[in-house]
Simulated assay, not measured.
Amino acid sequence: MSTVARPVGAPHLRLGRRGERLAAQYLQKLGFVVLSRNWRCREGELDLVLTDGDLLVVCEVKTRAGENYGHPAEAVTPEKVSRIRRITGQWLRSFGVGWCPIRFDVVAILASPAGELRLRHYPGAF
């Protein structure tokens, strides 16, 4: 008797994971090294934390199946930005990182009806 592996989670969660994988691969091709992925603390989560050896990049990844609720990058509201900044401080303390230059990026990913993903990178978005 054989079993067939089935995707785990709701479709929007699977799409989000696909988007985060694509974003990480894209940023790694630019020369960044992933330090943390989906790092969580009590206040929330950082999608990706990366470095090129000189710069720390905190990247918020937004993946959507369409633009019915606006472009994915529009989901990064001022409240979300404030939370990401606070969580970044917790990440720095947790890993004992002192002062370093930090850039906050957004990677917005749209999925076509056929399932193809289109990525747009906004370096220094906030």
Rank of each mutant, 00 (worst) to 15 (best):
G115H: 11
V58D: 00
A24T: 00
P113N: 10
C100F: 04
G53L: 09
A5M: 14
A23H: 07
V106I: 08
R21S: 14
H121Q: 12
L117A: 06
V34P: 01
Q90Y: 09
C59L: 04
N68A: 15
M1L: 10
E116A: 14
W99A: 15
L22S: 08
V4M: 13
A65H: 04
A65N: 06
L110N: 03
R85P: 01
F126M: 03
L117K: 10
R42P: 11
F126Q: 07
L119H: 02
V33T: 08
P7M: 10
T77L: 10
C59D: 02
T88W: 01
Y26R: 09
A10D: 14
G70P: 03
F95I: 02
A65V: 09
G89E: 15
V61C: 08
G115W: 09
L55K: 00
L30I: 06
V57S: 03
G124Q: 11
V97N: 02
S82A: 06
R14A: 12
A24D: 01
T51R: 05
V8K: 03
R37C: 06
D54N: 12
P123L: 14
R103M: 11
E43G: 13
Y26D: 07
E45L: 00
L13I: 04
D52V: 00
V76H: 13
T51E: 09
A5N: 09
E20N: 02
L22D: 14
A73D: 09
Y122A: 03
R6I: 02
R85T: 06
A24P: 06
R6E: 09
R64G: 05
S36W: 03
L30D: 05
C100R: 07
L56Y: 09
F126I: 03
L50T: 02
E20Y: 01
P123E: 10
G19P: 04
V76N: 07
P123D: 12
E74W: 13
L92H: 06
Q90S: 11
P78T: 05
F104A: 10
L15I: 13
R17Y: 14
T3W: 12
G98L: 13
F32D: 00
G98E: 13
T3G: 11
E116R: 00
A125C: 15
G70T: 13
V34G: 03
M1P: 06
G66A: 06
L46Y: 07
S112V: 03
L92M: 13
N68K: 15
H71D: 11
E67G: 10
P7H: 15
Q25R: 14
H12D: 11
Y122P: 02
R118Y: 15
V107C: 05
L117W: 05
A65Y: 00
E60S: 01
I102W: 05
I87Q: 01
E79K: 08
D54S: 14
L50M: 11
